[in-house]
């Protein structure tokens, strides 16, 4: 709070890292915020909602897997542009992306979420939870929408979303990391940069602990996505094998 940081990281270094991460986020965020706000009045019409609801379950799963995979490709690019990420060993880069890329997609989702109408930008328009009915996982969808709503209630700025995304991605407690210490150092620096940005933006005390709570919510969402995918795969193994994007299968494979 007095402007001092850990003795090993200078203020200039934190400022530089915060700038690097914010820039990487803007360059790889898939949709600009202004673009999303302009589109927010475009919600799906009832007959379009009916169209999604009457799709066969496997077709809707495939569509969502494609959309998630597209979003994840941007997250991979975000990771690559974070100072220090590409210096980690390749095993750890993969471990972090396997565990964290969907979490970052959920964080980024709050940018594309309209709290007033409880809708999210999906497949060209804003969609409510009913659009995803055919997936057959109402509880997961409700949790994802609730998460987006609670993230929105924090009113994070773009640089705060960027720094929080990097913090989530660089989690040093993921299983199978080979050089845990390196990841830990990078995550600590990112956390300091996040604190620095929060202070600079004059955010209220307690915002950091609210963000920490979101970390466990994200883990639970991803665990539930995996459970729902396993249940789907048990019924439609061939659909997953032949029609799901290869990157999605690599990330969420059994």
């Amino acid at each position: 709070s007095n402007g001092e940081t850990s003795p090993t990281v200078s203020m200039a270094e934190l400022e530089h890292l915060a700038q690097n991460i914010s820039k990487s986020h803007v360059e790889t965020c898939q949709y600009l915020r202004e673009e999303l706000q302009q589109l927010s009045w475009q919600a799906f019409l009832q007959d379009e909602v009916d169209g999604y609801q009457s799709k066969p379950r496997e077709v809707m799963w495939q569509l969502c897997a494609i959309k998630i995979t597209e979003a994840i490709q941007y997250v991979v690019e975000f990771a690559k542009r974070i100072d220090g990420f590409m210096e980690l060993c390749q095993n750890d880069q993969i471990v972090l992306l396997k565990a964290g890329s969907l979490e970052v997609v959920f964080v980024r989702m709050c940018r594309a979420f309209d709290t007033q109408n409880n809708t999210v930008y999906f497949d060209g328009k804003y969609a409510g939870p009913d659009v995803f009915k055919a997936l057959g996982c109402d509880d997961l969808i409700t949790s994802v929408f609730d998460f987006a709503k609670s993230m929105c209630s924090l009113h994070l700025s773009e640089d705060e979303i960027a720094l929080f995304s990097a913090f989530v991605l660089l989690s040093a407690d993921r299983t199978w990391l080979q050089e845990k210490l390196q990841v830990e150092k990078l995550q600590q620096k990112t956390q300091l940069a996040l604190q620095h940005v929060l202070q600079k933006n004059q955010r209220e005390d307690g915002i950091l602990s609210k963000l920490r709570c979101k970390v466990s919510a994200l883990r639970s969402l991803c665990a539930r996505h995996s459970e729902n995918l396993s249940a789907f795969r048990a019924v439609y193994p061939d659909i997953v094998r032949s029609h799901f994007p290869p990157l999605y299968k690599e990330l969420f494979g059994p």
Partner: peptide, 20 residues
């Protein structure tokens, strides 16, 4: 490595397959 072929490719490519 074989198990994460696409991730490896994405990490090694200087430009991403997505149109950024």
């Amino acid at each position: 490595k074989e198990k994460h072929k696409i991730l490896h490719q994405l990490l090694q490519n200087s430009t991403s397959p997505v149109d950024l």
